[in-house]
């Protein structure tokens, strides 16, 4: 392949969607997303919203853990910051949702920067522990700072609103969550077309060499923390609007592990993987619920086993993917695509 010198052709070459087939598929996908709420029943709509929120948070964690190589056990805590911000603002200010969500993201990003600060001196697993400490402190604050967070009882909130419109139903929320998810994934994709994304990956692959080649490690690690927790904050804010209540138990440590699992199962350092992982991990408990419901007539004890079964499946997915398919669902997806592009005719 020899690319001409015309500036135009580099632009085309650097585009996210390069072939017309890709463009058509993407347009079809967007159209399907638009159509979905009109054909889906209440349950599917509810799931669609959950997946959307999970996609945003997973994409954020993927930026930090998958692309920058910094494990975070604090994702749920950052989501909590976003969730409480939205809940507090909606109770005390009446601001419309775009503003509250933005503030939720920004506050979470600020907390993320604070948590990332030890990366000045420690790295790798020590940093992961720092994020764990952060999630302990955040949980403590959510539970104890009663005047702001409502203590163990939490806060309940009014539906999201904008220009006199309120978004009370899942149908309405879908039109906030899903467009935001699409936008935020595209924005993340953009980051990895530029110097900042390259810096993140360089830090993950070889931090010392990256520094010698001109990358200010602290600056970019903090930026990755900020970006990742911004995504978490927005996701947490949407979570609050969606369930209309936040409590300290809304954002447990197991939720952080859920998002780590989504990143791993989907494919670390792969945005498409993050989306697949988020959807897959969100739908597994639901699939298990269906299975349990189907089994209950024959095994009345089945419901008791559901929650431990879920723990086992989550754990087994993490271990299994890391050992057998470290590139996650994204790799499986590519393999399937390759298969279809070779058969029965190419393109």
């Amino acid at each position: 392949m020899r690319i001409g010198d015309a500036k135009q052709s580099y632009e085309a070459d650097e585009a996210i969607l390069t072939s017309s087939t890709q463009k058509i598929w993407f347009a079809l996908f967007l159209f399907a997303l638009l159509l979905f709420p009109f054909v889906a029943d209440a349950y599917l709509l509810y799931l669609g919203c959950l997946v959307g929120i999970a996609v945003i948070s997973t994409t954020g964690l993927n930026i930090l853990t998958g692309f920058t190589g910094l494990i975070s056990l604090g994702q749920a805590g950052f989501m909590g910051v976003g969730g409480y911000t939205v809940a507090w603002l909606s109770a005390n200010t009446g601001l419309p949702f775009p503003v509250t969500l933005l503030l939720a993201g920004l506050l979470a990003a600020a907390v993320g920067i604070l948590v990332g600060l030890p990366s000045l001196r420690v790295k790798g697993l020590y940093l992961a522990i720092a994020t764990l400490a952060a999630s302990v402190f955040l949980h403590f604050i959510f539970a104890e700072w009663e005047s702001v967070t409502g203590g163990m009882g939490g806060l309940s909130l009014e539906p999201a609103h904008l220009f006199g419109l309120t978004f009370q139903s899942d149908f309405g929320m879908y039109f906030i969550i899903v467009p935001l998810a699409v936008l935020m994934v595209l924005a993340a994709k953009n980051v990895f077309r530029t110097r900042i994304g390259r810096a993140f990956i360089a830090i993950r692959d070889r931090d010392i060499s990256a520094e010698i080649l001109g990358i200010n490690l602290l600056h970019y690690k903090l930026m990755s923390f900020a970006l990742s927790s911004f995504y978490a904050g927005v996701a947490g804010g949407l979570f609050a609007y969606f369930f209309r209540v936040v409590t300290p138990e809304s954002f447990p440590l197991s939720m952080s592990i859920f998002y780590l699992a989504a990143v791993i199962v989907g494919g670390m350092g792969n945005l498409l993987g993050g989306i697949l992982g988020a959807a897959f991990m969100t739908l597994i408990p639901e699939a298990l619920k269906l299975l349990t419901a189907a089994l209950t007539p024959f095994y009345p004890n089945a419901p008791i086993f559901m929650s431990p079964m879920l723990e086992i499946i989550f754990g087994a997915l993490i271990v299994g993917f890391l050992i057998f398919e470290p590139h996650g669902l994204a790799e499986i997806w590519h393999r399937i695509r390759r298969f279809f592009s070779l058969w029965p005719f190419k393109n």
Partner: peptide
């Protein structure tokens, strides 16, 4: 480390 986190989850279950 993530494998050990997965193992922890399996054991709890």
């Amino acid at each position: 480390v993530m494998v050990t986190i997965g193992i922890a989850s399996i054991l709890v279950g």
